[in-house]
């Protein structure tokens, strides 16, 4: 706009558009009639325009249009006239003010797209994670209640055990090979630890292992299965000794579980109270106290050994096709 103001003399900028047009028309020596004829406007309209009277033209679009046509006819800069008009009358069509100059927009940024995709994926992953957590917590609720039952349950996980024979069957089995590799001392010691009853068996084993250990190496290799077998029998002997021990434990209120594999187990006693439940890890033992009869659900029944009143309960018999045993004991 400044360039138009520079182009025109300073007093002109303050004048109304009509005055600017009249000055220019008079300068060019034209009459209003001539102008009206060229613009196809009524002569009165031209004088009105010059006097800035717009009663006859109620619509601003026409007012501005006529002024611009007039200015163009006289060879003036129409924008200058329109600016003068705007100064006086303002622009009633504010919408047009808001219109930004035409510009070409930058192409959509790839980065935004990538960020958006990333955020979406993260949100989806988060939702999936939350769902999983919720699901797990729902499944895990029984294991939380385990804490309540703790007084009645004695988990046997190692040296902290008090009353019961520690060496589980599985540990004997797993130690079998080690016994074979290195002559029977570890087995012997562990057996020594286990119980006095075992001492005789253990010494027998160590003697046999000792004799095999004396033979030449290749012969020793050949002997390994035999040793294993002997150790296996030793294991059986231990199991028997355990059985002997548990016969001492003839209390009808006690259940003894040995979990060779992971299993979800639940036991309810006569009062209907849950005395034992939860996911048991492989290689653990548990002793459950309660009043018979026990209603129990043992998952993965083939991997669990249950002793009750000194007898091994056949879980397989009670297990269904899904390998879950559901039955009542001690009726």
């Amino acid at each position: 706009m400044s360039e138009y103001q520079e182009h025109s003399s300073t007093p002109q900028t303050d004048r109304s558009p009509g005055e600017m047009l009249r000055a220019e028309r008079e300068y060019q020596g034209l009459s209003t009639d001539e102008v009206a004829e060229q613009l196809n406007l009524r002569p009165s309209l031209v004088t009105d325009l010059e006097a800035s009277r717009f009663d006859q033209i109620p619509v601003p679009a026409y007012q501005r249009g006529y002024l611009r046509s007039y200015a163009r006819l006289l060879g003036m800069d129409e924008r200058m006239v329109v600016h003068a008009y705007d100064r006086v009358h303002g622009r009633d069509d504010i919408d047009e003010r808001r219109i930004t100059p035409i510009q070409t927009v930058r192409p959509p940024s790839r980065l935004g797209k990538i960020i958006f995709r990333l955020v979406t994926v993260l949100i989806i992953l988060g939702l999936i994670g939350l769902t999983l957590l919720w699901w797990q917590s729902r499944q895990g609720t029984p294991s939380f209640s385990e804490g309540n039952n703790e007084p009645s349950v004695t988990q046997q996980d190692g040296p902290s055990t008090s009353s019961l024979p520690p060496l589980p069957e599985s540990s004997v089995e797993t130690r079998g090979p080690t016994v074979a590799e290195s002559p029977a001392t570890p087995a012997a010691t562990s057996l020594n630890q286990s119980a006095d009853v075992d001492v005789a068996v253990a010494s027998q084993v160590s003697e046999q292992a000792g004799t095999t250990g004396d033979t030449p190496s290749n012969e020793g290799k050949l002997q390994v299965p035999a040793v294993e077998g002997q150790n296996g029998s030793a294991g059986r002997a231990v199991a028997e000794s355990q059985a002997e021990q548990s016969t001492q434990n003839n209390d009808p209120n006690v259940l003894q579980f040995t979990f060779n594999q992971e299993s979800w187990t639940e036991v309810r006693d006569a009062s209907g109270q849950r005395v034992f439940s939860g996911l048991q890890k492989a290689g653990t033992q548990a002793e459950v106290h309660g009043r018979p009869p026990f209603r129990m659900t043992v998952g993965n029944a083939s991997g669990v050994v249950l002793h009750y009143r000194g007898e091994t309960v056949d879980l397989q018999k009670n297990a269904r096709s899904s390998n879950v045993a559901k039955f009542t004991l001690g009726e």
Partner: peptide, 8 residues
């Protein structure tokens, strides 16, 4: 023969 306005 009409007045003609060019739109802004």
């Amino acid at each position: 023969g009409l007045p003609v306005i060019i739109a802004e």
